[in-house]
Simulated assay, not measured.
Amino acid sequence: METQATHRPLNAPETTPSAVELHGVTRVYGTRTAAVRALDNVDVGFPAGSWTAVMGPSGSGKSTLLHCAAGLERVSSGRVVVAGQDITDASDAELTRLRRTVLGFVFQSFNLIGSLTAEQNVAMPLRLAGQRPPRKVVREVLASVGLADRVRHRPGELSGGQQQRVAIARAMVTRPAVLFADEPTGALDTKSARTVLRMLRGMVDTSGQTIVMVTHDPAAAAAADRVVFLGDGRVVDRLDRPTVRLVADRLARWEE
């Protein structure tokens, strides 16, 4: 039997501390008559130790919100706080350090280096941070995503689902406070997508990982603890303990 979903008013306070907070965030592309407001005065928090899915129609601002929250893009106005640090005016050097130590990223396209083994790809963030990655640590992370027997395989020798698991291991090797995921199951078949979603669920339930994920898939969103819906650059709805049916119904309502 499905868990009962809960609709929460937009102005309801969070019941747990937020790992990521956006305060009055606006992001504008272009200038004057060509200006496009991708985010419009967004106030939203993502609770620590939980998994939030971000959904909405094409052009609603989903990816822009993720990129601004993760420090990949500068906001036009407002503030962004991640893991207790205000990153709004952080220098490029500070943002680079945060991305290598505090934040993890997983994307639909995997972004693995084809000439490197799974082990070498996972070790890359530590090397970029000037560290000598212990082989034991790298292999433990790969084992945690079910790839203990694939450490010496290159991306071309792995399935799409296995490549995404390598990408997740690479994002987790620095033990980030927040894992940002942009359509992490979008390029996967149904079976592989389920495997990845179960793995992400386990990270939250077992390790208290904070995950913020953009997705268009109701099944992926239903694996999360809550869903934040965007429309025209604004937060228009929230749903706690989502189900596939309710998420799909909510999306269908906007597409009518």
Rank of each mutant, 00 (worst) to 15 (best):
A143C: 02
Q108S: 08
I113T: 04
L126T: 13
G156P: 04
L116C: 00
Q164E: 06
G114E: 04
R132S: 14
A118Y: 11
D149R: 08
R132W: 03
V102F: 01
R154E: 09
D89N: 15
I168Y: 03
P125I: 00
R152N: 15
S115N: 08
V145M: 02
F105T: 07
N111G: 06
D92W: 08
R165W: 05
R165V: 09
V141Y: 12
E140Y: 03
G130E: 12
F105I: 11
T88S: 13
L142M: 11
E119L: 11
L112Q: 07
F107P: 04
L98K: 06
E140Q: 15
R139Q: 14
V106A: 06
L158Y: 02
S144R: 14
A143K: 03
F105E: 11
N121S: 01
R139A: 03
L126Y: 12
D89V: 11
G161L: 02
P134H: 14
R139K: 05
V141Q: 12
L147C: 06
A123G: 10
L147M: 08
L95W: 04
D149L: 00
V106Y: 01
R135Y: 00
S144I: 01
R132M: 07
L95F: 01
P155A: 00
F107I: 00
T88L: 02
V151L: 02
E157A: 14
K136C: 02
P134N: 13
T88Y: 05
Q163C: 13
E119D: 11
R165D: 12
L95D: 05
S159Q: 06
P133W: 11
V138H: 12
P133V: 10
G114A: 09
T96S: 15
S159N: 03
A93T: 15
R139F: 07
V145D: 02
T88H: 07
F110N: 01
G104E: 09
V106R: 01
F110Q: 05
H153E: 02
L95S: 11
F105R: 11
S159A: 10
T88N: 08
N121G: 01
A123K: 11
V137P: 01
D149H: 12
Q163N: 13
I113F: 15
I168M: 08
L103S: 08
P125L: 01
N121K: 07
R165K: 04
R152L: 06
V151D: 09
R100Y: 03
L116I: 04
D89K: 12
V166G: 04
D92Y: 06
R127K: 13
A129K: 03
F107T: 06
I113K: 06
T117M: 12
A129L: 04
A148K: 13
Q163S: 04
S91T: 15
L147T: 07
L112M: 05
R127Y: 02
